[in-house]
Computed example of a mutant assay.
Amino acid sequence: MSAILPLAAVSFDPGVTPREGGLPGLNVLRDVMGSINLFAIIAVVGALALSALVWAWGHHSGGHQAEANGKKGVVVAAGAALVLGAANGIVAFFAALGERVQ
């Protein structure tokens, strides 16, 4: 038998909010995350170029499987570039949305 939690228990606010400057090294962590994001974007550019090359090679050589894999690679790399480029905005949007709900 499953118990249904009352609404008050589900919407309990522990009172924890993000605070800038709470820990030492926050600027270093931001720099590290920015660098990781940059390396990921550079890797995605390489993956996009390689996938486009496989797509073109598969199309011109009649390799339908290679062509399909190249197309999938281009779509996945483009999606990854979109998410990496928009990651900061996505997190900021949902963080602000969470603040408005309270």
Rank of each mutant, 00 (worst) to 15 (best):
P6A: 08
L7W: 10
A8L: 09
A9W: 07
A9L: 05
V10P: 02
S11E: 12
S11D: 10
F12R: 12
D13C: 03
D13I: 05
D13Y: 11
P14L: 00
V16H: 01
V16T: 01
V16P: 00
T17L: 12
T17A: 13
P18I: 00
P18A: 01
P18M: 00
R19K: 12
E20Q: 10
E20T: 06
G21W: 09
G22T: 02
G22R: 03
L23T: 03
L23E: 10
P24A: 09
L26Y: 08
L26S: 11
L26Q: 15
L26M: 13
L26E: 15
V28T: 14
V28C: 07
L29E: 07
L29Y: 15
L29T: 11
R30C: 12
R30F: 15
V32F: 15
V32C: 06
V32K: 08
M33Y: 03
G34V: 02
G34C: 02
S35L: 12
I36H: 03
I36D: 10
I36E: 08
L38R: 09
F39W: 11
A40P: 00
I41Q: 14
A43K: 01
V44C: 13
V44F: 04
V45C: 12
G46I: 03
A47L: 15
A47V: 01
A47Q: 14
A47N: 15
L48S: 01
L48C: 00
L48M: 02
L48W: 01
A49F: 13
A49K: 06
L50T: 14
A52S: 14
W55A: 12
W55R: 08
W55T: 02
A56P: 02
A56K: 06
A56V: 09
A56G: 03
A56H: 09
W57K: 11
W57A: 13
G58P: 04
G58A: 05
G58W: 05
G58V: 05
G58S: 08
H59V: 00
H59S: 06
H59Y: 06
G62A: 04
G62D: 03
G62E: 04
G63R: 04
G63Q: 14
H64Y: 05
H64S: 07
Q65C: 02
A66E: 07
A66G: 10
E67L: 03
A68T: 06
A68R: 10
N69E: 13
G70E: 04
G73H: 11
G73P: 06
V74R: 10
V74F: 04
V74Q: 11
V75N: 10
V75G: 08
V76Q: 02
V76K: 01
A77T: 00
A77W: 00
A78P: 08
A78H: 04
G79Y: 01
A80Q: 07
A81D: 08
L82T: 13
L82H: 11
V83N: 11
V83T: 15
V83C: 14
A86E: 08
A86R: 08
A87H: 10
A87E: 12
A87K: 09
G89V: 06
I90Q: 13
I90A: 14
